[in-house]
């Protein structure tokens, strides 16, 4: 699925949040959306998910305007992982993951075992991919913070959408699960899913994302491969840091050294 953003402007109250954003993403791209706090990353993601109507500009999904898409269709095509997503009730892990199937109406069935095979398949796969099979019958309130993040990710994967928008999915995960998450998302992109993730971990972004979009002050300041975007000059300009950019064992390493 490709998504096109043209001349997007967004204001919240008097404050301009996003200005003049142009972005074209193609199917199978794995895009890291980076930028300092308050740069507008989450707002851009919510605009792309159709949750926040822009004041100006257009968003197209496969060349169809996003706001013309029926609610249910949009829900099937775009999976959105909220920042700090959590479940308010202590439901069972597999029940939470099954919520990802809501756009298909079938998930309203009382018991997920009564779901049709396709639906079940999606849920099982999502549980496997997120390393949750052993926890599937546990209640989410008994899980660690990192486990809960994975449950929320599995919920978005269960939708089986072609566009995944994830807001800081790596936050709160231990290093092993961070790597697993990024590998999983990269694999999803390889399968043809368009993946957009908001990240704060520069090294993780540099290593896995194929493309980095850097936002600052509500504007797109850089867009390109990790090597092009994540260089010391760019980082000092947007983040105000001095950083070490190098590599070890052939993998990129970015280490913030100090503030300027």
């Amino acid at each position: 699925m490709n998504i096109g953003i043209h001349n997007l402007h967004l204001r919240l109250g008097d404050r301009p949040v996003l200005s003049d954003i142009d972005l074209q993403l193609d199917a199978g791209e794995f895009v890291g959306l980076l930028g300092p706090n308050g740069a507008g990353k989450s707002s851009l993601l919510r605009c792309m998910a159709g949750l926040l109507p822009p004041d100006n500009g257009h968003i197209h999904l496969d060349d169809r305007p996003l706001n013309a898409l029926p609610r249910m269709q949009r829900a099937r095509q775009i999976a959105y992982l909220e920042q700090d997503a959590d479940c308010h009730w202590p439901m069972m892990v597999e029940d939470v993951v099954a919520l990802g199937r809501l756009p298909y109406r079938l998930a309203t069935r009382r018991n997920w075992t009564e779901l049709d095979p396709v639906c079940r398949q999606h849920i099982d796969t999502a549980l496997e991919e997120s390393d949750l099979v052993a926890l599937r019958r546990r209640r989410v309130d008994g899980l660690s913070g990192g486990e809960r993040r994975r449950v929320m990710l599995a919920r978005t994967l269960a939708t089986g959408s072609r566009l995944l928008l994830a807001d800081e999915p790596a936050a709160g995960l231990d290093p092993a699960h961070q790597l697993q998450l990024m590998q999983l998302l990269a694999a999803k992109a390889d399968e043809g899913m368009t993946v957009v993730v908001v990240l704060h971990d520069l090294a993780l972004a540099a290593r896995y994302c194929r493309r980095i979009v850097l936002l600052a002050g509500g504007r797109k300041v850089a867009d390109g491969s990790p090597g092009e975007v994540l260089n010391p000059e760019q980082l000092s300009r947007t983040y105000g840091i001095r950083a070490y950019v190098g590599e070890t064992e052939g993998l990129p390493v970015i280490l913030p050294l100090d503030r300027i």
Binding site: R46, A49, G50, L51, R71, M72, R74, A75, R76, I78, A79, Y80, E82, A85, D86, C87, H88, W89, M91, V96, L99, G100, L102, P103, R105, A107, T108, M152, R155, T159
Partner: peptide, 21 residues
């Protein structure tokens, strides 16, 4: 309201992203 309430247990934004009006 059942579907909507289920979706809402993940928060309002997520519920909307799941197609709930």
């Amino acid at each position: 309201t059942g579907r909507g309430l289920d979706a809402l247990s993940l928060g309002e934004d997520t519920a909307r992203s799941l197609g709930i009006s």
